[in-house]
Design a protein around this nucleic acid. Structure first.
Lengths: 129, 129
DNA sequence: AGCACGCTGCTAAAATATTAGCAGCACAGG
DNA sequence: CCTGTGCTGCTAATATTTTAGCAGCGTGCT
């Protein structure tokens, strides 16, 4: 079963998915440790089972415990998250979003990063023809 | 009461907030009309009332009905949404996020937009010194 | 006036999500 | 061997979300 509309997640489920995407993979304990306002261990396991039923994660036996992985590859998930964000906050405009990103991370972006971005844009312009 | 951690929203509440941010402002009917899998009108109003209690929206009397507005300005909300997205999907790297944005909207970005972005980056690099 | 309409507030039921706690199983150490 | 530890699966209670439905209020129309 595929993780269809993906927006059906409850609050906790979403938090858990965020952790899993952030870490790439995680055990129940790790998930719990990365959860805001951590619930009981038991609760986390229950939620992970539900998420697995719903098809958002799968697990591998890793030694004595389960290792949970997202079923949807990170970059697919990224993509739809970005799309959603664009629609909600930027009227669908990628340009506006990029501008906001640059603006909010001026101090964090190194000169090399900016350099690379400039190149990237240049390349994108070429393709656009 | 301020919309503190902001991540406390339930599924429906989040959907509603998305609509309100997208539209900027909306009546209960409009919210309902923009909701996926629209619930009853009554349900929407109940949720709006809750969101107002929690401090996420406020309302104005607009003629005979209520017009709901977000309490947190769109660009503040944007910012935290972006931050969250960056953390979850891009290891906090704005560069990676911009790259993904460009990549996923190559065909939609006009040459002028790309032009503007190039300039924007150039300007950012100046400031960075 | 009397009525229909579209809105609001509210409350209580139904559906879901969230949690705790018990039982079993495997493994490592005394 | 026992025993403690750390996992798992499960079930049942609790809390929260989500819903429908009723009552009231104002406006405009006949």
């Amino acid at each position: 079963m595929a993780p269809e509309s993906q927006a059906q997640l409850s609050r906790r489920e979403r938090q858990i998915m965020d952790v899993i995407y952030r870490l790439g993979k995680a055990t129940a304990q790790e998930v719990r440790g990365n959860l805001p306002d951590p619930p009981s261990y038991s609760a986390v396991r229950a939620l992970l089972r539900v998420l697995e039923e719903k098809g958002h994660v799968r697990h591998r036996q890793e030694g004595p415990r389960y290792l949970y992985l997202p079923t949807v590859a990170r970059d697919k998930a990224r993509r739809s998250a970005l799309k959603q964000l664009l629609r909600t906050f930027f009227d669908g405009s990628a340009e506006a979003a990029v501008a906001a990103l640059l603006d909010m991370s001026v101090d964090e972006l190194s000169d090399e990063e900016l350099e690379r971005l400039a190149e990237l844009i240049e390349r994108t312009r070429q393709e656009g023809r």
